[in-house]
């Protein structure tokens, strides 16, 4: 049970801005009060007097001094976030929801399927998996984006490729001359993946259409429905299971999710919208 007002954000100072692509920036924030989150949980980030928006931090949950939030320009509030100046304060509420159950991943091969901005929450998961890599058999990360310019976190990809037990495969919908990896929708990457499916867990995070076809492909590969973890994007606002905006059938995605197994939600209406 909370002691503080559930609607009141804590303050966090913007200490650094990383330009990931013309449309995407990562804001590095130092909270004024103690703040930590588990991978997959989300926060509400506020611009004072302007508005707030939900994000799953893209930094490591083990770093409790600062957190990184990757923001894609998508409207009024996120545009303003892109214009925040270093030194300014923002507000953080949370963390909210149910993240990834990491213990379930132990002694397993982890297959992660990501698309577009879905990389942001997945990076936090990847950081965390790296920290516990002695307990994980292998991590295969398949990531798809529209064009090579839309591939974010390039230095991190390089770092990941050099990490033992981690394998990175990428595809773009539309290649240019510099592109040396796969071309096509992200699910094509799964064709070449060698994985011990019965001893594996799959994670999918990205745009709805990619989540849909990704999930179907995983089922085709033999993944049981309760071994596929989906991170659902709904219109999260309060984060507290009250405002109703994130409702998906009889779930409040903000509180019961945002991470669900496919088994838990496969019958819900508008799952892929």
């Amino acid at each position: 049970m909370q002691t503080n007002n559930i609607y009141k954000p804590i303050k966090a100072q913007l200490v650094k801005v990383i330009e990931e692509s013309p449309e995407i920036k990562t804001l590095v924030l130092v909270p004024e009060e103690e703040f930590s989150f588990k991978t997959g949980e989300f926060i509400e980030l506020t611009i004072d007097g302007v508005g707030e928006a939900p994000f799953t931090p893209s930094s490591s949950p083990l770093d409790t001094k600062q957190l990184e939030v990757t923001v894609m320009k998508a409207g009024y509030v996120t545009d303003k976030m892109h214009n925040m100046q270093i030194g300014e304060y923002m507000g953080i509420r949370g963390p909210y929801g149910r993240g990834y159950p990491l213990e379930e991943f132990y002694d397993k091969e982890v297959l992660i399927l990501g698309g577009g901005c879905g990389f942001a929450p997945l990076r936090s998961l990847l950081y965390n998996l790296k920290a516990v890599s002695d307990r994980i058999r292998k991590v295969t990360f398949c990531y798809g984006s529209k064009t090579p310019a839309d591939c974010i976190y390039k230095p991190y990809i390089t770092e990941l490729r050099e990490t033992p037990k981690f394998e990175v495969r990428r595809s773009v919908d539309k290649a240019d001359d510099t592109w040396t990896e796969r071309v096509g929708v992200v699910t094509v990457l799964l064709d070449d993946v060698k994985i011990d499916v019965p001893n594996s867990i799959a994670v999918v995070c990205g745009p709805p259409i990619m989540m849909k076809f990704g999930t179907f492909k995983l089922i085709e590969m033999g993944y049981p429905e309760n071994k596929i973890y989906l991170s659902m994007e709904k219109n999260m606002s309060c984060g507290l299971g009250k405002c109703g905006h994130c409702a998906m059938g009889s779930f409040f995605v903000c509180k019961d999710g945002p991470v669900f197994t496919y088994e838990e939600i496969k019958n819900e209406p508008n799952l892929w919208i």
Binding site: K11, V50, E52, C243, G244, H245
Partner: peptide, 17 residues
């Protein structure tokens, strides 16, 4: 259901939605 409207000093107004 409701909407949260942001006000200065990190205040929030809950408004029926």
């Amino acid at each position: 259901c409701f909407l949260l409207i942001d006000k200065e000093h990190f205040e929030k107004v809950r408004s029926v939605d």
